[in-house]
Amino acid sequence: MTSSHDNSPPSSLFVQLFAKHQCALNAFISTLAPTRTDVDDIMQETSLALWKKWDQFDVSRDFFRWACGIAHIEVLRHRRKSATDRLWLNDELIQLLSVEMLENTELFDLRRDALEGCVQKLSDVDRAAVELRYQSGMTVDTMAKKLGKTPRTVHRTMSRIRRLLHTCITATLRELSGQSA
């Protein structure tokens, strides 16, 4: 970033906005990229690009939309050089999903908020499985070895937990909307 621009927005605002939206931005990228490694790489590239272009940012605009636009470009750029090409969704879908995600940002924010509450409602055992998978970053195979189960069992367990969380989130939102009916 060049700081010579007299009218460029202050750096502190960038830090503030980026911190506020980075979780949602990560979710946006995760929906378009196939693996965690890809997501992490794109997130890093996007952060850098946002910082480089910060002096062009119009503070009256929506930061998240602007960031998603840049993230979308980074997704396409990363895809071209990715070693996991076979896993990438096609361009048309990436475009569609990007647009539609931006139409529903409020809903996804609500769902993310509800997720935290729902994780806290999981049983100890299910929470432990989630921690192994997401905190320790274990693959299913590693988890299976550690737990002495088959990978298929671990897959099913994780699927069940994700379904439970999904149901819980939906129920939470429904309850919220019903109670404020």
Partner: peptide
């Protein structure tokens, strides 16, 4: 279906983020 897919994938992303 796309909404369902996005919700599902973002749930996973949310867990990654939360536990990171």
């Amino acid at each position: 279906r796309r909404d369902q897919f996005v919700q599902h994938v973002q749930l996973s992303a949310g867990l990654h983020w939360m536990f990171s």
